[in-house]
């Protein structure tokens, strides 16, 4: 019974009550994933499971046998930051830094959803093939991640910069 976390195999907890969030923070000592409400209302605990963003506080760890979990620690570390982590610093996309790992993981999951063409509440044409990286799309899609310090503008700017550039690169490669 195991899953992988940031590429390493880890055992599932004996106690099925242990949430994925508490497994990461208290059992695996990966406190980068944050607990802000423990009830699915703030997004601070967002992690990527097989590339999809989920809330680790509402996830029982035992449900994730065989799955691959990526946390903020798996994205980059000081000295080798992910481009989005770097962009958060440049655009001051945080203040206290507590919601930040969740915002970053969420944004990476969101980018996948946009590439896949998943519509959002503000997508005008449900049948569109391509989702624009408009501020409204980003704001709506990031609304599951609360920030109380009020770094919203910087977060949207950081995401815009990184994924707009990335799309340009992708187009150039084609």
């Amino acid at each position: 019974m195991s899953m992988t976390v940031n590429g390493a195999a880890v055992s599932l907890p004996d106690d099925p009550r242990v949430s994925l969030l508490d497994l990461l923070r208290e059992y695996l000592h990966l406190p980068g994933t944050k607990k802000g409400c423990n009830q699915g209302a703030c997004g601070a605990c967002t992690v990527l499971v097989d590339g999809e963003r989920i809330l680790s506080c509402l996830a029982l760890a035992v449900q994730f046998e065989g799955r691959s979990v990526t946390t903020i620690e798996g994205l980059g570390a000081p000295g080798s930051l992910h481009p989005l982590q770097q962009a958060f610093i440049e655009h001051d996309g945080f203040q206290c830094g507590y919601c930040t790992p969740g915002q970053i993981c969420s944004a990476i999951g969101m980018a996948q959803e946009i590439r896949r063409g998943v519509p959002s509440h503000v997508t005008a044409d449900l049948c569109t093939e391509t989702i624009s990286l408009s501020h409204d799309e980003l704001r709506e899609r990031m609304s599951g991640n609360l920030c109380r310090c009020g770094a919203h503008n910087g977060i949207v700017d950081a995401i815009t910069e990184v994924f707009a550039e990335e799309d340009i690169l992708a187009e150039a490669a084609e």
């Binding site: 406190p31 607990k35 570390a77 000081p78 930051l81 982590q85 958060f88 830094g97 930040t100 790992p101």
Partner: peptide
Amino acid sequence: SRLDGPLKVSGTAPFAAEFP
């Protein structure tokens, strides 16, 4: 830019509940 930015964006800035 914030000097503690790299710690915060990488989840390595230690908060109160994170001192084992």
